[in-house]
C-alpha cells in the first residue's frame, strides 16, 4: 500500500496546499505538515490513487476493512470533509488533524466534539441523538445494557449536562459539562501528532523548506 511521490508530482495533486500555509494555520511545523503528506498519500491511494481520501479509504485506514460501517467514523469523515464534497483533501486533512494535536486549543476540541455529536446539525445535542449514539456503540461492541439502563444513563447525563432543562444540550452547556468532565475530550487528542516526523520521516529528509525560515 505504501507509495512515494516525488516533489515534482506533489504540487499537481488536487487539493494540495503549501505546507507553509498549513503550518501557519495549524499547530504543525512545516516538517510535520510534510510528514502528514506522506501519511495522506498512503491513505488516499489505498483504493483510488487520486490524491483524495474517499470514505472507503478512511474506513480502510481506520479498521483495515473498507466495508466496516461505523457511525462515529462516518461523522468524523463528514467533519474532516469541510467542503462537503464527499472527499477529504490534503488541506482539510491537515486542518482537521490539527484539532487533535496535543497543543491545539481546548475550545477547538470542544467545538469539534459538539459538532460530532450534533448528528442532525441542529446546533443542539438532543436526547434522541444521544440515545441513537449509545445504541450504535452497544451494537458495535460486546457491551450489553438493557433499554431501561440506557434510559437511566441518558436521563442522568441530561440532568447533569442540560443545565437549562430544555431537553437539549447547547454549545454553552456542552462547554460547561466538558469542563467538569475533561475525560470526555480524551479522544480529541492524538499523542502520535507530537512526533509525526519520526513516524513518517521520508519527507523531512527531502523537505524544501527549513522550519527555521518560517
Amino acid at each position: 500500500m505504501g507509495c512515494f511521490h516525488s516533489k515534482s508530482t506533489l504540487h499537481y495533486t488536487p487539493g494540495y496546499e503549501e505546507p507553509t500555509v498549513l503550518a501557519a494555520e495549524t499547530p504543525f511545523t512545516v516538517s510535520e505538515v510534510e510528514a502528514l503528506y506522506e501519511l495522506f498519500k498512503r491513505i488516499s491511494s489505498c483504493i483510488i490513487d487520486d490524491g483524495l481520501i474517499h470514505r472507503e479509504e478512511f474506513q480502510l485506514a481506520l479498521f483495515r476493512n473498507q466495508k466496516m460501517e461505523n457511525l462515529f467514523a462516518d461523522r468524523i469523515f463528514d467533519l474532516f470533509d469541510i467542503k462537503r464534497n464527499g472527499v477529504i483533501e490534503f488541506g482539510e486533512f491537515v486542518r482537521s488533524l490539527g484539532i487533535f494535536h496535543p497543543n491545539a486549543p481546548v475550545a477547538d476540541k470542544m467545538s469539534f466534539a459538539f459538532k460530532l455529536y450534533d448528528l442532525r446539525h441542529t446546533g443542539y445535542i438532543e436526547r434522541e441523538e444521544l440515545k441513537e449514539m449509545v445504541l450504535a456503540l452497544l451494537h458495535e461492541s460486546d457491551l450489553v445494557l438493557s433499554d431501561d439502563v440506557v434510559e437511566i444513563i441518558i436521563d442522568e447525563t441530561f440532568s447533569d449536562a442540560d443545565s437549562k432543562g430544555d431537553g437539549r444540550i447547547d454549545s454553552e452547556e456542552w462547554k460547561e459539562f466538558v469542563s467538569r468532565n475533561p475525560s470526555l475530550l480524551k479522544n480529541m487528542t492524538l499523542p502520535y501528532l507530537m512526533d509525526i516526523t519520526l513516524a513518517f520521516p521520508n519527507f523531512v529528509v527531502s523537505s524544501e523548506v527549513d522550519d527555521s525560515e518560517i
Binding site: L62, L71, E140, L143, T157
Partner: peptide, 24 residues
Amino acid sequence: TCLNAFDIISLSPGFDLSSLFEKD
C-alpha cells in the same frame, strides 16, 4: 451511576484516529 452517555460513546473504535498512524 457515575457513567454518563458520552463516556460510553467514546469507547467506539470509530472514534480512535490513532489507527490512522499504524503502518501495515
